[in-house]
Structures are given as structure tokens and as C-alpha cells.
């Protein structure tokens, strides 16, 4: 985040779990398929590497692509975020930062999504998507079961 810009969305959820488990759940396909509408985040997670948000059952269905900016387990994950059609288009590439911190006896997970194109389609999807995914992640880690409806695809894959 530069001094001139401010993040567009900041989401916080408190999860009764360990930082390691919360951090791992962001990229473990067996976890994401349960709470992140049957998707997985595929990458070798090295800074500079590409990552893809793809269908768990059919990896050829890619919804989001980006680059790994920073990964410091179990604290920080920073990635860029764009529709596959906008890959390489800086104006249509946003940035997502996950911060995992111990907070009292639980874990505070903060998701900051910024550099979003004003009025763009991503802006709309983001504001309805994160609260659902984050509350399902919390429920899965705390109860062993995700929220109803978050284990299957919700939308048709992009054509």
C-alpha cells in the first residue's frame, strides 16, 4: 500500500484455531475445496510465481490468476488478482493481502483487497464474495464442517 492509495476492502474474522492451520487453509486444496466453493489455489507459492484459482475437479476452469508477491508462513500471503482475460493488464489487476496474527487466545485473519479498478466487475464480485468465504473458513476450522452451500461451485465458469 502506497501513501497515495488506501485499501478498498478490509475484512477481519476471528478464528478459534492456530496461525499455522489458518495460514495452511488458504492454500491447501483439501481445505479450499470445502469452503471456497470447490476451488483450489494452485502454485508453488514462491515469490514471483504464478498462481491460479481453479476448479478443484477440473483445473482447466480457471477463475482468477495472479502472481505470488510475498509468502511468509504462517503470517503473510500477498498475491495479485485478475480475471484470466485481464492477465498482464495492470489497470485490471488488484492485490490481496492475508495477515494471520495471534489475537488473545484466537487468530485474527485480515484480508485486504485493494488496487481494484473503480466501477469494474471485480469490485462487485469482491464485496459479496469475501464475507461468505471467510465465514465459511471460520466455521470449517472451528467445527470441522464448512458453511452450507460453500462446498460446490456457485457460478458458471468463465467462457
Amino acid at each position: 500500500m502506497t501513501a497515495a492509495t488506501k485499501p478498498k476492502f478490509v475484512y477481519v474474522t476471528y478464528i478459534s484455531s492456530t496461525p499455522e492451520n489458518v495460514f495452511n487453509a488458504l492454500t491447501d486444496p483439501e481445505m479450499t475445496k470445502q469452503y471456497w466453493v470447490r476451488h483450489r489455489n494452485a502454485s508453488d507459492w514462491k515469490p514471483g510465481s504464478e498462481w491460479r484459482h481453479e476448479d478443484y475437479d477440473d483445473p482447466s476452469l480457471v477463475d482468477i490468476v495472479g502472481t505470488v508477491v510475498e509468502r511468509t508462513p504462517p503470517k503473510t500471503l500477498v498475491i495479485t488478482w485478475a480475471f484470466p482475460a485481464d492477465k498482464g493488464n495492470a489497470a485490471k489487476t488488484s492485490r490481496v493481502r492475508f495477515d494471520v496474527e495471534p489475537w488473545r487466545s484466537v487468530v485474527r485473519l485480515t484480508v485486504t483487497h485493494d488496487e481494484l479498478e473503480p466501477g469494474g466487475p471485480m469490485l462487485k464480485g469482491v464485496s459479496s464474495g469475501w464475507p461468505l468465504i471467510l465465514s465459511s473458513l471460520k466455521t470449517l476450522l472451528e467445527s470441522g464442517r464448512p458453511l452450507a452451500g460453500t462446498s460446490t461451485r456457485m457460478t458458471e465458469p468463465p467462457k
Binding site: 500500500m1 501513501a3 488506501k6 485499501p7 476492502f9 478490509v10 475484512y11 477481519v12 474474522t13 476471528y14 485480515t110 485486504t112 469475501w130 464475507p131 461468505l132 471467510l134 465465514s135 471460520k138 466455521t139 458453511l147 452450507a148
Partner: peptide, 27 residues
């Protein structure tokens, strides 16, 4: 209540709407 989240930018305190608790409540 967790409905507003604060982010510091230098000496400025920015306030963000955090709808996650409302979602958890509805669920």
C-alpha cells in the same frame, strides 16, 4: 462488535466496514 475495522495509514486512522460478523449472524 467487529463491524468496523481500523487501518492506520501514517497518522490517519481509516475506518472500514467489515460485514463478516453480519454474515456469520445470518448464517
Amino acid at each position: 462488535a467487529g463491524l468496523v475495522v481500523v487501518v492506520w495509514r501514517g497518522r490517519e486512522k481509516l475506518h472500514y466496514l467489515n460485514p463478516v460478523p453480519i454474515h456469520e449472524m445470518a448464517e
